[in-house]
Design a protein around this nucleic acid. Structure first.
Lengths: 194, 194
DNA sequence: ATATTACGGTACAACATGCCTCGTATTCTA
DNA sequence: TAGAATACGAGGCATGTTGTACCGTAATAT
């Protein structure tokens, strides 16, 4: 059941994603136009419209690999909270670079195009949450994390904090991240003396 | 030292802001064009360009009053944490309505226009933080909040969480907000038995 | 009266989008 | 080997938005 007709050009596909990623780094998603992508990739605008539904979709595909690579999670066997702390710092570090600007641009695009939002949740948020969740589950199971908190809410708070800084163009310094983690772990309430 | 020449028309100014706010509610900032604003306000585009540097600036001015009204903070004399909880819930509630969509749009606009970002920080984030800060300071002073946490970071985490939901178009339910506050106050670490 | 400034209206170039058509290239099937 | 099917690059075109400029007119101070 081989497909009939001229097959999709892998060369074109790759050239378009490469051109997109370069332009994202140089100018950001806000100033990315399909025309510039097509010209740099040596492709035609028709081809872009043929395969991608929106500017956001191209940007997403062009960035996914890099994002997943930069925010990798390599378990090192110590307790869950220590590992989560390492993860958050690695994310914060990645967000200080060009990737942060790209993500901010994607989040902005999500506000004007529902399809981009859907893709963002499906291709980026979902998989990354699924990847991190076992870590928090481990913490819940071994008693290092309170059993009555929702791991989803933990993610909402920590990533929410990081992304909010990102949108306000405030660098997520390591010291700031430490403060966030301290509050996350210990809370802000003054403890009664033990 | 009275100004010479025809004075700026207050009627036009007001009509433009009114038209902007209406259009924001109807279509969102993404689909707001200066032309539509001008036509509905019975003004001319020249007048808009004369007084505002950008679309974001008009949207900001048109929304500021509403935003400040909806997220009002009325002290009720109980302890600082309880009051902060009430404030966050009132914010979460406001964000579920049309105001949330407008803010999301402004945050998106901030990613494509640095001037809008500057205005957002100066006119919205700054004043609101300054308004809330005394509340947290009171908590620090009376010992209900740990003395070694930064009130800024508390705001970063809580508002970051809310705004992140906002950008992902996930309604900030009261129950979710309760979970966030619980983590904020008590932390996620399992406490040693007292 | 005159200078000064704001107003609404209009025109303009520049650019981006989305859709369409064309001639050509590459592959499978008969 | 011919033909059908599909993808390709190139480019045209209507539409809409932006930013700037210019006009004649309106309102105010000196």
């Amino acid at each position: 059941m081989a497909p009939v007709g001229r097959p999709r050009s892998d060369a074109s596909h790759a050239a378009i994603l490469k051109a997109t990623y370069e332009l994202l780094q140089e100018e950001g998603l806000a100033r990315l136009t399909l025309d510039k992508v097509a010209r740099r990739a040596g492709a035609s605008r028709s081809t872009l419209y043929r395969w991608w539904p929106s500017r956001g979709a191209i940007a997403m595909e062009a960035t996914l690999d890099t994002i997943n690579r930069e925010m990798s999670l390599e378990p090192q066997g110590d307790n869950a909270l220590a590992e989560y702390r390492r993860l958050l710092k690695s994310v914060a570090r990645a967000m200080r670079g060009g990737t942060g600007a790209i993500i901010a641009g994607i989040l902005a695009e999500c506000q004007r195009d529902p399809e981009t939002l859907r893709l963002y949740k499906e291709k980026l948020v979902g998989p990354r949450r699924a990847e991190i969740m076992p870590l928090l589950q481990r913490g819940l199971a071994d008693g290092s994390i309170r059993a009555d908190v929702s791991p989803q809410t933990i993610l909402d708070m920590t990533f929410g904090a990081i992304y909010h800084q990102l949108l306000l163009h405030i660098p997520t310094e390591d010291a700031w991240m430490d403060g966030v983690i301290d509050i996350l772990v210990n809370g802000i309430a003054a403890k009664p003396s033990r």
